[in-house]
Design a protein around this nucleic acid. Structure first.
Lengths: 341, 341
DNA sequence: CTGAAAGCGCTAACAA
DNA sequence: TTGTTAGCGCTTTCAG
């Protein structure tokens, strides 16, 4: 009755079409040396029998799953969305599917990550920060022969195909923008310290400060985690002080929005009383009011390029080992001249 | 040299541990009747040989990929994020991976969807709207023996495990809220008409209008696509008229935010000159300024429950066939009393 | 241009 | 408690 009647296989299709199973295989793999007539008959038979190739059997011999992973940590939803959309954009109309691999804390479980990828039989992965900077993961990946491409790594750039971004310069530019507006007392909300970009951006800020002859005050640096809430909390701490800064540099847009809300609750107008700048140019920076001054990071484009690099490796084409992406200062309404005393 | 030296298999592990391959298989599958000592030896051997099970071989005999798909259309990023986070939350620490299957237009390619799932060898899928309402897809899924669970379907509720939401009542409640505030001229921005919820919400609105003795004006209904931009465009059309409405009901939060921006550009204050309400309670509704009055749709919880239903089917447990989820009117700052003449 | 045989790495069913 | 045998459905040789 409910006996699991065997799925239809290439053998069935072959019999139905009057050819051998191997010929059916040839047709389905687009191999040459098959008569048009045979092709047609095989296709018709497959259609009639509702045949669908079995990925396991195929994968077992070819060692290919046609699955590509995207490894990321979770902090900023808007960043993750851009990332995914980029990879999916490149994968569209391509014979690959995307498996999402969120990792709670790459730093804490670097040893397990590749095991996970391996057990999912992924052909390749796109590594977003901070996994893209993790040496252990790169090594394990190589050992497991899983192809990869990296998004915004900050070191070991030659180790694997990389999509680079000049975080330091970008950070310097936003900071310089605030300084140009006359700000001298600028606070910083740092991102998750396990992400190398947190350090890189801090360096960029400090270069701008230095160039303007400003000294960096450590008590003006608060730590966040790239999340909305952490940005809010950090801003509350900064604005609670009696001598509050006149501007805040947040290391991403989500934290900048958090700071914006904290400022609003503290009765401060932005940018009248306080200027706020973010980083990323994610959707929230445009939706917020006032819209947030930020640095555009071409996340979508980097994700497209990374997916492209993975596919190129898989298909054996020529692989671009590094690609530089350009940032861009985006001045919106959240930054303005320093308030007069 | 670069000869692809054979991967290590259970046979190798068995030899190394002095047992048969079947015993190794037993250990790796946690089957009973294996001595502790043997287990230990096998584990050690596997470790020493850096053995990793081959998913293809396993899948070939067990017919299981341990892959679960999430099928959705693309309109609202915040909705998709909640959806994914919910499914991933349930899958965490579970032996399943998530494959994301964005479909540009379910209506246009309903015939291809299941073929796609099939070729990715998915064990089960979570269907988000509008796929969750698509009969053809449900049928194909059944034929392909792919388990599924649905998010917010509006019909054929018995056809497959469903997570239900009372869209009509929810819509009626937001509309009633505006009417209570004194609004009599309320415009509507509809969502994508291929999503059944667009119709359901419109009906809810109209019931509230009717109960208040208001007639629904067709020229006050604009069509959007659930996207930010479409909401903006629709609002521009509505506000361009000389006798503009005093309130707007947008069928989701992204479109509400679009309307908010259009209002701002038109020099209108919200809610002073114009009230705006959304739908979903997605993150943007909280971030926007003023924060948007909306109806909370427990997307995350529905996604968790749907993933749970899929897993239950896969593991052969008892499967909940329907689960009702509660909405909640969330009043924020974007709605207020009707402006005085 | 097409087919036959062998085997990918694993587990189900049975035997010992 | 452990091992043996026989495939799962496909592709890779190698012959015809």
């Amino acid at each position: 009755m409910s006996k699991d009647h065997r799925r239809t296989t290439i053998v069935d299709v072959g019999r139905h079409a009057g050819v051998s199973s191997k010929t059916v295989s040839r047709v389905f793999n687009g191999e040459p040396h098959v008569t048009e007539d045979v092709k047609r008959r095989v296709r018709a038979a497959a259609e009639a029998l509702n045949y669908h190739p079995n990925m396991f059997a195929r994968g077992l011999v070819q060692r290919r799953s046609h699955l590509i992973g995207l490894v990321y940590e979770n902090p900023s939803p808007s960043y993750v969305v851009d990332l995914q959309m980029g990879v999916l954009h490149r994968l569209r109309d391509e014979q690959y599917q995307l498996v999402v691999i969120p990792v709670a804390s790459v730093a804490e479980r670097e040893g397990e990550v590749v095991g996970l990828l391996r057990s999912a039989a992924l052909d390749g992965v796109v590594l977003a920060p901070p996994a893209s900077d993790n040496l252990r993961i790169l090594e394990d990946l190589a050992a497991a022969r899983i192809q990869c491409a990296r998004i915004a790594p900050t070191r070991l750039v030659e180790a694997a195909p990389s999509n680079l971004l000049d975080d330091v310069t970008a950070a310097r530019e936003v900071a310089a923008h605030l300084i140009d507006l006359g700000h001298r007392d600028i606070a910083i909300i740092k991102g998750d310290p396990t992400h190398a970009s947190a350090e890189a951006r801090l360096i960029g800020y400090s270069q701008a400060f230095h160039a303007a002859g400003l000294s960096i005050r450590l008590d003006r640096i608060e730590s966040g985690m790239f999340t909305h809430e952490s940005g809010y909390a950090a801003a509350v701490r900064l604005l609670g002080q009696t001598d509050r800064p006149t501007a805040i540099l947040a290391q991403n847009d989500d934290m900048a929005v958090g700071a914006l809300i904290a400022a609003r609750e503290a009765g401060l107008t932005v940018p009248g009383d306080l200027s706020i700048a973010g980083f990323d140019d994610s959707e929230v920076s445009r939706i917020a009011w006032p819209a947030i001054t930020t640095v555009r990071q071409p996340v979508f484009e980097m994700a497209v390029a990374a997916a492209d690099m993975v596919i190129a490796q898989l298909e054996g084409g020529t692989v671009e080992m590094r690609r530089e992406h350009r940032h861009e200062l985006v001045i919106r309404q959240s930054t303005g001249p320093v308030p007069k005393r």
